[in-house]
Design a protein around this nucleic acid. Structure first.
Lengths: 142, 142
DNA sequence: CTAAACCTTATAGTAACTATAAGGTCAAGT
DNA sequence: ACTTGACCTTATAGTTACTATAAGGTTTAG
């Protein structure tokens, strides 16, 4: 039997996060010692290790809860996990593409800004470009 | 003079977001009509357009507030903006690298999962791999 | 005996909003 | 005149996954 502090150390999850997981029912309410301290056993450690690792893989707590619910009902969660993973992968790919587009846009604006004056009114400087974008200002003869 | 609904339509920012921006003092409290409806003028439209665009570039509201504060005090914000941009760019690059690492890890787990059985106990299936990672399970003879 | 290092609960704060409730105002239609 | 619907108002709760704080009880070491 380990205390919440020991569980925290063994898993690298903060004690507040552990209590939070209990509150949202991701972890079962543990037994209490006479002094009302929480007491955890090996299966609790294992469950929390799974949660920790799934969080590192950016699974949402709701997804993790569903995965654990399968197991709690003696059903293999693997199929569900595979689906969540596939979704995660495409979500990440989309997010990366978005971020790269954003990065390119910022880098272009930044380069443009290096050649521009400071301007309180923001009509002639990089601040203005933020609002309008580059297209109708730079490299666009019309 | 335009109403909050019209401002919303002209900028693509929701009315709730506009009220929220007012609340956190990103936008000044506008004049009110006799019926206490908010009334906005051209400079409000312009300011909100700047905010919108900066948000699309993923600037934090706090950064945007600082940029606008420069202008409100008749100082050119450009230097500050350039710094924020440079920070944004490296933050994004880091985030992209993190996400790509994550994506690779998930993709590898997913591929491994395709060849594994379903397992309630999660000792022999992809769910187990989530907890332990691949290294000591797959492609590792020892 | 007291100070530190634990533990407990409850509550507020984070970011950037969205959603909801409960109500006031206004223009158009019957 | 009245009602319907589309606006507007404020205030509050919910989102995500926690962290931080307050205010207190317990245990251990010196």
């Amino acid at each position: 039997m380990v205390s919440i502090g020991e569980l925290s150390q063994q898993t690298g999850v903060s004690t507040q996060a552990i209590r939070y997981y209990e509150q949202i029912k991701l972890l079962p309410a543990p037994k209490r010692a006479d002094n009302s301290y929480r007491e955890y056993d090996d299966s609790d450690v294992e469950r929390l290790q799974f949660v920790k690792r799934a969080r590192q893989l950016d699974f949402a707590l709701g997804d993790i809860a569903e995965i654990l619910a399968f197991r709690d009902q003696n059903e293999p969660p693997c199929q569900y996990v595979m689906n969540v993973m596939a979704q995660q992968i495409s979500a990440i790919e989309e997010r990366v593409a978005d971020l790269q587009r954003l990065r390119d846009e910022l880098a272009t604006l930044h380069r443009a800004g290096l050649t521009m004056p400071e301007d309180i009114e923001m009509k002639q400087c990089v601040c203005h470009l933020i609002k309008t974008g580059l297209s109708n200002e730079v490299g666009n003869d019309e």
